[in-house]
Design a protein around this nucleic acid. Structure first.
Lengths: 366, 366
DNA sequence: CATTCCCGTGGGAGCGCTCCCACAACTTTT
DNA sequence: AAAAGTTGTGGGAGCGCTCCCACGGGAATG
């Protein structure tokens, strides 16, 4: 069953049927109605391959995720990202392809490029952060292929979408310390990661603004895991000057911190206040009353997909960079008694760029 | 850059280049080498759409997951299934497409069918269980479109792959009770689900074989959640005849059971023994020393993809049904002192079919 | 009333591949 | 030595669509 068949059944030409299928205005109403009916009756659907061949568009977008992380799917961050991309694609009537490759491996990158770009398999690709410092971005740019990286990159020529980790952290920490605590501490992420550094910088911004002596505020770098955070929090709690307020760069780590606090017979928030980051596993954080910063993953994903389409339309070469707003989710661990949700203002990075890039060219989306 | 271009560069015909690309034997070695080199040098990759159009194959397989479950991705079962399918597809050089739709919704099903089947978008589709009692399977069968359902279905005409939940449960429970406990109990899954019923049947098989009075063995139906299992286990523990061995139909529920046991001041395995099912979140189960039955999700996924290809090759109409082996993962909660892994024999269903289907036609894979 | 314009429609070309058949140049069989 | 088969190669047709141009007829314009 193809266009020609439908055309014959409707007594019109192939072109006319094509116009009806593609909602072209230049078809008279009665012809349109007749063709529509026949299409419905005969269960016709245009052949995707033929369409792609003629239009040079596949209406398929992809998400590339790194293979290295073994537990990649147990980490709900990736799961939620996938879900968000899938949702956004479906809403735009795009098909969604998942790809997994090793990053930092020339051969694997080549495989991706050949298959997707040169084989014209995809219209665009969303790249989850770990691939960043790669040949891949260069190849993609060179080939003028639409892509978006999830997570701000330090080399500022790439297309990306991210939340303003620094601004969010600054505001959250300011809120945390408004409860009168005097000995803050941070369990930060690995200092090789941009997001981890941005969150730490936001923490320090807040300290500075509030007049804390940065030298005396302990910061420990953990690996996002509950276990490591637990251990490090324990160390700090056992030190001569135990912290009375923790900012953890992720909820998992915040949970580790809370466990550590409790294991020393202390209570949250009566004795020690805690602030997390992510709010992805809402069930657990709610149960613990963990105050945290919400990452709008669905929005990040949807924005990424949109940015892909934008690149497809206009092939301008200026990088597309977008920062999304976050919300402060107030439960009880920060010291508040009543839950609340506060949308955080952004733009902390504008003045404090960690790179020497030419201009603070991010687009802040409100 | 297309076939013709390469042909011109190599001084041969389009056909010859095509043969080289597709590893056709009928090309002389020197011509093959020359063409290969030019292909590599010019970064050529065949156009997927053109290929699909000519061959009527897309080399894309899909996974359809139900939209209803809000936390679909927090549940690591789905995440692992996706990962498994993705891995298997990549290994076979297939692209992997993810689709999310509402099941039990005629319109949504129609959308899937039209887009994937009639639009020739996919070569085959893996369906995660919730879609089963649907119009979808009928449509798929009718259109002779390759599909595989994850999870045994009671209406036995469909293609599926599953683990033998019943045999696995029987063996695991037999093992559990070998430690001399006399008052077993089960926290089962929702009795609307085939897998839940199979696991319960396996439990009962074991009881019968060991000479227990089934009437007096309590079985509670929960919803796979830790919370509900916790509550039900508590009820049982507070009854006049508290159980001294629990079989939980999932690890989450087993964790709830362990919490309940501990909250009554009892110890696992000294006072009460526990057996779970799934072994997906290995980190948590290991930490708790939970003995459980391992579901080989990766194998399930890989088998599903393979079955898709099989259907593509030979379009025989006999349903393709495959049961995969499980392993008993012995840690400490069952009462054992030394960890062990035991591959379980299958075929429990062969004699005890829960349906009245014509023949026990499953293929047991060892 | 003649000319231009627009609107709705039809048909050809072409997207880049595969598959089939043709055919030349050998090799093997009769 | 003729017939048949084999091997390597080339070219045409066709997969089902879109896009462009052509064209007829009615409406708007001069």
């Amino acid at each position: 069953m193809n266009l020609e068949d439908i055309a014959k059944l409707a007594g019109v030409s192939r072109s006319t049927v094509s116009r009806v299928v593609n909602n072209d205005a230049r078809v008279s109403n009665d012809v349109r109605a007749r063709v529509r009916e026949i299409i419905d009756r005969s269960n016709y659907h245009p052949n995707a391959a033929a369409r792609s061949l003629a239009t040079r568009r596949t209406r398929i977008v992809g998400l590339l995720i790194p293979q290295e992380v073994e537990s990649i799917f147990v980490d709900s961050w990736f799961a939620r990202l996938i879900q968000g991309c899938l949702r956004a694609s479906t809403a735009l009537d795009l098909s969604f392809m998942l790809m997994m490759e090793q990053s930092n491996n020339a051969e694997a990158v080549d495989r991706v490029v050949r298959r997707t770009i040169q084989g014209h398999h995809l219209d665009g690709i969303v790249i989850s952060s770990s691939f960043v410092d790669d040949i891949l971005v260069d190849r993609l740019t060179e080939e003028q292929f639409p892509y978006v990286i999830i997570g701000r990159d330090v080399q500022t020529r790439a297309n990306f979408v991210d939340v303003d980790n620094r601004a969010a952290s600054r505001h959250a920490v300011t809120h945390l310390l408004e409860h009168g605590r005097t000995r803050p501490a941070m369990i930060a992420g690995p200092d090789t990661m941009v997001a981890a550094n941005d969150r730490r910088a936001g923490f320090q911004d807040a300290l500075r603004a509030l007049g804390f002596d940065e030298e005396r505020v302990p910061i420990r770098h953990a690996d996002w895991s509950q276990q490591t955070a637990f251990r490090m929090a324990l160390e700090l709690l056992d030190s001569p000057e135990p912290p009375d307020a923790f900012f953890a760069a992720s909820d998992s780590m915040a949970i580790g911190v809370i466990q550590a606090i409790r294991s020393r017979g202390l209570r949250v928030p009566e004795d020690v206040n805690v602030m997390g980051f992510d709010d992805i596993d809402r069930e657990r954080t709610t149960q613990l009353g963990l105050s945290t910063i919400e990452q709008p993953i669905d929005l990040v994903a949807a924005t990424a997909i949109e940015m892909l389409l934008e690149q497809q339309e206009s092939s301008q070469s200026r990088p597309l960079q977008r920062m999304l707003p976050t919300r402060l989710i107030i439960r009880t661990s920060c010291g508040c008694s009543a839950p609340d949700i506060i949308t955080l203002p952004q733009a902390a990075l504008a003045g404090h760029l960690t790179t020497t890039s030419p201009a603070p060219a991010f687009e802040y989306v409100q």
